[in-house]
Structure formats: C-alpha cells, structure tokens
Design a protein around this nucleic acid. Sequence first.
DNA 1: TTGTAGGCGTTATCAA
DNA 2: TTGATAACGCCTACAA
Lengths: 325, 325
Amino acid sequence: MVTLKDIAKHANVSACTVSRFLNSDIVVKKETEAKIQLAIKELGYVPNVVAKALKRRETFNIAVILPKINNQYYSEMTSGISQTLGKHHYNLFIYEVDNLKLSEDEILQLMRENMIAGIIFIGLFSDMSFKESIQDVVGWKIPVVYANRRIAYNGFPLVYPDMVQASKLATEHLLAKGKNRIAFVHKHLPNDLLAYFEEGYRQASNNEQGPIILKVDNGMDLSQDCIPMLLERNIDGVFVLNEMLAAHLTKALVKADVQIADDIAVVSLGNSIISQISSPELTCIDLQDRELGIQSAEIILSQIRKQAYEPVTVLEPIIVERNSA
Amino acid sequence: MVTLKDIAKHANVSACTVSRFLNSDIVVKKETEAKIQLAIKELGYVPNVVAKALKRRETFNIAVILPKINNQYYSEMTSGISQTLGKHHYNLFIYEVDNLKLSEDEILQLMRENMIAGIIFIGLFSDMSFKESIQDVVGWKIPVVYANRRIAYNGFPLVYPDMVQASKLATEHLLAKGKNRIAFVHKHLPNDLLAYFEEGYRQASNNEQGPIILKVDNGMDLSQDCIPMLLERNIDGVFVLNEMLAAHLTKALVKADVQIADDIAVVSLGNSIISQISSPELTCIDLQDRELGIQSAEIILSQIRKQAYEPVTVLEPIIVERNSA
DNA sequence: TTGTAGGCGTTATCAA
DNA sequence: TTGATAACGCCTACAA
C-alpha cells in the first residue's frame, strides 16, 4: 500500500508537506506542488481516510436510522439525504432498526464506536428524548436530527411536515368540490396526531364540530364494514390518512358501484406511486418526503460545522389534484 | 474520551490484556476479566472502531452502489442486504450513483479511501467488468458482487433472477388459462434480455415461433396506440415486462372496456406494491428481490472470510396468482 | 496467562 | 514555506 510517506520520499519533501498539499490547508510552492502531484500519479497513491479520521477525531460518515428502507416514504427521504450528503462529500450509513433490533443504548454505542459525525432518526423513538441524559452526562454531543416525528421540541432539531396544513388543504379541496359531509378515515393513528388533522379541518371549515372520524380496525373488511357506514351517514367526501388505505378504500368503493369524485370524493395523504397507480388516480396531499430528507441533512451538516440552524423546521405540504376528488 | 489504556490502568492490567479480552481472542483469567469489565462500566468505555480498523487494515463496512434508493426493487434488495449484514455486525454504506454522478474510477477510489470491506453493485455498469484491470494491476483485490445484472461471468460473482424461468412461468400460466395468442409488452428492454424472455416462451409453449413482441416507445399513448394493436391481433394474454407498465396497461384496458383475465389476461413482471394496488390485482412473477439482496450479502461475506462461494447464483422466480390472469 | 514496545497512516505542534 | 517529532487508539509480535 502506497502511503503518504512514500509520496514524500519520492517527491523529496516531508510527509508534512504532502499532507498540507492534500488538504490544501496552507499554501505550498508551485514547484513542490508539481513534484507531489507527479509522485501521487506515479505511485498511484490513495489517501487513507481511516487514518485521517483517527488523527482528526472526526469522520465524514452520517448515519440514518429508520425502521426499514423498503418503504416508499423512508426511501424517498433517504434519497434526499443521500443527495445532500453526496454534494458535501459525506458518506451515508443506513441502519434498519426492524432488522437490527438494537436498543436505543446499543445504537448510540454503535454510533460512538464508529465515530459517526451525525445521526438522522427517521420516524422513530416516540419517547420524548433520545437519551438526552446520556448525551449530557457522558458529554457525547453528537449531532442529531429527528425527521418526520411530530414531538415537542426537546433540544434536538426537528423536521416534519405540517399536518394541520395538510388536513386544511384536503378539507378545503373537498369543500370547494361541494362536499359537505366529510369523513376522515384512518388506521391506528395516535390521538395526538389525529388532533392535528381535526384542527386542520376546523380551520378550513369554520366548523367547530370536527369531521366524522372513522377508524378502520385490523380485522375490518372495507367492503363489508366500512363502506356501509359511509353510505349510511351520507358521506360525500373522505380524507384518508394513509395512502395504502386510501387505495384499498377506493378500490372497495368502486366495487360497490360508488362513483368516485361524484358520489364520494377521496383525498389521500401522501404522494407516492400508490396514488398514481390507483384507479381512479388519487388526489392527494404531498408531504414532501424528499425535501424533508434534504433539509434534515442540511441541518445535520450545519450542526457539524457549528453553524446556526432552525430548531424546528415545518414543511408545507401541497395538494396534487388528480381524478378522485 | 476513555481509551483502552485508561481501562488498563484502572483495572491494573496491561492494555494488551484488555485488548485480548475485548476481542475474546485468547483466554483471560476470570479474575482479570471481572476487573476489566468493571473498569469498562465504571469509566463508560466505548471501543474505537476507527483505530482498530487502521491497525487491522480492515473495516466492517460494506458499500451498496445503486442508481437510486427510492425505488421499489432496489430498496427491497437493499433491505435484504441490510438484514444479512446486520446479523454479522457489518455496517452498510449507500451510494446513489444518480445523485453522486461519479465515474467508475472515482467510486473505486472512494471505496479504497474508506477501506471498504466489500462492494455490492446493484444493476449497474453494463460494460463487462468493473475495472478488472485496475483491481489486477494495482492489486486492490476488494470483494465485489454484482446483483441483478445479467452479464457474462467475468471473475466477479453474479446474483440475478432466472429470467428465462420467469418468462416460462408466465407463459405456462397464460397457456393454462387457455390463452394462445400471447404478446410480450416491454419498454426499452435491451435485446439480450429480451432474448431470455423469448426463450422462456419457447420452452413453455413448444412453439418455435416466439411470442408477439410489442415495444412501447416513449411518446406512445397506451390507449391510442397500444390497445388497438392488441385488439387487432386478437391477443388474449400479455406478459408485461415491467410492473409499472403493466399497471398502466391494465388501467388502459379497463378503460377500453376490455375484460381483464377474460378477454385479455395480464401477467406482470415484479411483485411489488404496484401489482397489489392495481385493479384488478395483478398476477405476477415475483423476482425475489429481497432474497437477491440476502444472497449478495452472503457472498460478499464469504469473500471477505476467504470462504468458498458460488460464482453465479441464479434465483428462481415464483408466480403469484391474483386476479388479472 | 500477561506485559513491553513498536507501528498502522495521518495530522498537529512546534521550530527552522 | 518547510521539516522533525509526537501523537490519535488500537493491535501484535515477542518476550516474560
């Protein structure tokens, strides 16, 4: 293996000079510069980032920790992160928690062992703080960003979409289409999150009473259990708080001879391939997954560089009108 | 930062002994073991993997290099890789070529700089060999696996699904459903790949004449240009060589009042969310994406450990019967 | 079973 | 503008 010292010898300079040239820290004489460049080419030198990291006590590695990567939204966010990190020559580690099944402590230890420069958590750890205690007590001030988690600010920067606005957009759209009996359909959504959606509805409708909430339980059959409920209640517009569920519900409605958009309008939450494939294609609220990743990465980089950053970044969703509403 | 030396001092042993204990290389006396464990806990010691890597001249980092991660198939494969690597305590780097836009040389250099233990290429580099020359000349014998690339074996292990078998399964299924006028529909498929599909058709049909091939060009409208062709030719079964295209084609057929399965049966290639969401749900050939990732990772690990491995691994696709055929 | 000493490849601190 | 020297934290002969 060709090392920096070999280059130094071959170019008749000190290792120190070569290092300075490589890091373009301080000015180096043109003449020596040429000698060094020649040596590097002739010997086929490749710098050793590991040795550098040991000495400098920092890596260029960022870890993304998420439940699983084979998921529309997470992989879109991750791609956004990758894009930004790539631009700044940082590397991207992926840790799938569902596969690894490591505890929070073990993950943090892993990050330390590998001298990770920053951690982006995507949609994880519902408890209030990620080992704030450990970070404080042990003095491991490793930069962290929470992406796509709506929790109260607790010292770690947060990046997430504005769910109130998402709900408001959906409701406004349905109202504009003349739909007045609106239901929100969801599946295992925590109450606090649901509250945001209800708030958005109120803001859009000026109706103190919230929307009709329909929770789809696990064993429930959409055609048998859910559609009749919608029909009985004369629902003419639904906002489905999960894209997959929206696709299934739409399918069941079509099967029940309900005219989508005309009889019942459907707006879905999330703009992935799912909404495009459904028939009819789903009008939906785009939560800006990629942008979320990009911003998360930028905040991590700001932290690493000790620059200022927003503690809480709220992304504005946009509505994408297609054929279902 | 607490180092191994600190542990040694605190436990009244030498650094060497601590190192041995940590790597559980050689037996250590129970008594000293206890002392060391205590010291580690008391001081909150975290090993430094970077220093270890420098000394041992090897990391536990595997790189996956792919066009983009926000893609059904690639993210599924990657998740399989992640699963296997996680089990063996290897870390996973992701490099998105579409974002990075690095040349082959630059990627290889990046891998060397970071002392990557192995590289898995997913669906990349159509040319015959990944810098075989460089690997040979410079002596960088870094383990490599090509996943999901059907190229001739050139010294680097290959893992890919059996496309002939995939085509055979699809054709057999269509024939069993009484479909005799079968078309293969594709979009920008290279000729060599197409040849595999034709071969599968022949094997299933005992018909020397291949299937009717319909290529969908970029500007083509399915309803206007494609469906009439199918109808004119009295096609009663199609095998669509791209899942997204299958979804769109199915949608267009439904719109044209063609009875899917009865009038024209549709089999799609690939079993992602797309086939499930389509209506009707698509009968499809599952190419075993996750398994492909798992096997690729295992082969990389075998190479690293200097164990034997299959140079070419061909995965058997399976048919998933749903409602479109 | 344990300890000593040297080095992995790089950079930081001085001094020249 | 450059060089000598000493680390960074760990592992590995070799010796005890």
